[in-house]
Amino acid sequence: MLPLDTLLAFLAVSIAITFAPGPDNLMVLGQSLARGRMAGFGIAVGCALGCFTHTLWAAIGVSAAIAASPQLFLGLKLAGAAYLAWLGVQALRNASALRPAALAGSGEPWLRYLRRGFIANAINPKVALFFLAFLPQFSRPELGSVALQTVQLGLAFALQTVLVFGTIACAAGAIGRALAKRPAAGAWLDRLAGLIFIGLAIRLATDGRGQ
């Protein structure tokens, strides 16, 4: 078990990182505005599960293999960008001035948003490399298995991700619900979400390797 001071320091840094603007919290923000807080919360839980997946990869060495293979890294990066772009196009196509999405609530199952958040996070190789570099800094080899400590840290990171992103989802969902009371706001919120996804796709596809 990790010492309390180490865990608290890890959580403080993790919360600061999670609040910092990035692809995941922008997805939560965009979907919460366009589709309501439960849609955003689904994305939040999916991203958290994706983070824990990267933790397991780091623990068993998969992330190290990605770091060592430029071809694998590029392939995963392009796959992630393509998936985000597809989500963006779907949001733009579904935009309708007759459907105030955030006011009425999403007609899609909550688990569908969870799946979207999970896939978008889990296939992003830059997140895998971040966990590979970040988690070991808080491991204490003298306390035992570094792999087990990595899993514990990853679980703590995933839990605080749900709390932080859930807060963002609630706040943005309330704003989106208020905006959706205006005529045609639902369509513009969908378009905003679509543009966020497409912007994230372009950023991921064109960004450098970032190692």
Rank of each mutant, 00 (worst) to 15 (best):
R99L: 03
L143M: 14
A104H: 13
V45M: 10
R37A: 07
F138L: 11
L129H: 10
T53V: 12
A147H: 10
L153M: 13
F41V: 07
W110N: 04
A102C: 08
G144H: 07
G75A: 12
Q152M: 15
A59V: 11
A67F: 00
A64Q: 14
L98N: 03
A95P: 05
G107N: 01
P125D: 08
S32R: 04
Q137V: 00
A68G: 05
L148E: 12
A58Q: 09
S69F: 00
Q149T: 08
L111I: 11
S96D: 15
R93P: 03
A44P: 03
T55I: 10
V146G: 01
L78V: 09
Q90S: 08
W86K: 00
L143S: 06
M38N: 11
V45T: 13
K126F: 00
A64G: 12
I66F: 01
A120F: 06
L49K: 05
L49P: 04
Q71V: 11
C51N: 14
G144Y: 02
G80H: 05
A67S: 11
V45Y: 08
L78G: 09
L84R: 06
R140Y: 06
A65K: 13
C47Q: 08
L153R: 10
A101T: 11
L143V: 09
S139M: 08
G80D: 15
V127M: 14
I123S: 02
